[in-house]
Amino acid sequence: MASITLKINNKEVSVDVDPKMPLLWVLRDVAGLTGTKYGCGISQCGACTVHLDGNPMRSCILPVSAAANKSITTIEGLSDDNSHPVQQAWITEQVPQCGYCQSGQIMAAAALIKRIPQPTDKDIDSAMQGHICRCGTYTRIRKAIKTASLISTQKASKG
């Protein structure tokens, strides 16, 4: 056990846990942020994706000690009112079915359009192919990423 200070969604949180415990379980079971999901535990499905200093990261294989002093963003911190362009696009295109994979998909998509504001189909393929959706929402995810890119360019030009 060790006391570790984490910065989750811009808030400092102090946790007393096994430093080897993956960030996923700290977020879900210690910090009470259950929006980040467990799907495989071996970095194969993307359900557990969060941002670490702005980059998408699989929290299921990341020991919590490696996240200390870094800025962690979870789905709950992307926006609290579904106002992020990716969340808006996900609602517009009615992407989720069961919804279980979608926190991870949304976090990956948000990182993608931040890095590449107007992603091509190839960019989408390479950024998103680590994410499994058993309900098969892939065609809508592709569409929604393009919609999100549109929404954020409009926002940028307005703001």
Binding site: S79, I91, Q102
Partner: peptide, 15 residues
Amino acid sequence: DTPLKTNGTAIFGLD
């Protein structure tokens, strides 16, 4: 139910 599934608030069994 879509907004609950885009902001992490939908409660699944595991949650």
